[in-house]
Amino acid sequence: MDGSISVSNLNVWFDTNHALKDVSLKIGKNEITAIIGPSGCGKSTFIRCLNRMNDIIPKCRVEGTIHIDGEDINNPKIDVVEVRRRIGMVFQKPNPFPKSIHENIAYAPRLHGMVESSNGEGSEPKRRNYTKKEIDDLVEWSLKRAALWGEVKDRMHKSAYELSGGQQQRLCIARALAVKPEIMLFDEPCSALDPIATAKIEDLLVDLKKDYTVIIVTHNMQQAARVADKTAYFYLGELIEYGDTEQIFEKPQKKLTEQYITGRMG
């Protein structure tokens, strides 16, 4: 249970479109990894493989292995629902439920129940229902963790749609944290946000790193340089280069990477 990820020979097709080609990489625990690359190069497709969200898309085919904590999540015998509980995801556009702020966060934990004990590797953890107090505490904890508590604590039962875009995005982060994942995936979480909201989320990412493995897709080079430990550059479905952020930005090994980073392409 540490949140390390090891991907090997990952291929994805949408019908006949070969969207990811033979991607292999290892992501260590408690690191922030930035995924960069031009639009359509497969960044979203890649992170959606990590929590098997591509299953929902009818004509999508995934091949290759993805080990998370040593367990192959593409193994047909694995419980997809359990995989998604261990891996939180925040989407490009804030997508709160049409429910109250409190309900948005309480929704999933209430369905899952509280983990009482995990009986070691492989077996499903034992769960029981949350008490009302426990739910309230969990909601508060998640909102504090997502740096939103102060702004919403007096209107927990108002619609989540009354929040600003940046607040909604932090609500979505809190909602994902409430499930207590080990890994957090962010797909361009700041693309709809202003610099102040973006800065808040970046601070949050760095703070989350202590407890989670974080992967963030971004179009913003400065953002990748600011927050990420490692950076992966994708181009036309291929992983071109992967390494320490500093190295990628200062001494890229590949011509394509250099062209992209210096803005001569895409």
Binding site: N51, M53, I56, V81, E82, V83, R84, R85, R86, G88, M89, F91, K93, N95, P96, F97, P98, Y107, A108, L111, H112, C172, R175, A176, V179
Partner: peptide
């Protein structure tokens, strides 16, 4: 019902039936 709402629910590790009954049908 926007696809983003369904994806939000599935990404939280809910089952198909939970998503249908708690997110899709209410919306």
């Amino acid at each position: 019902v926007p696809r983003s709402l369904k994806e939000a629910s599935y990404a939280l590790g809910t089952t198909r039936w939970e998503t249908i009954s708690k997110v899709i049908l209410p919306a």
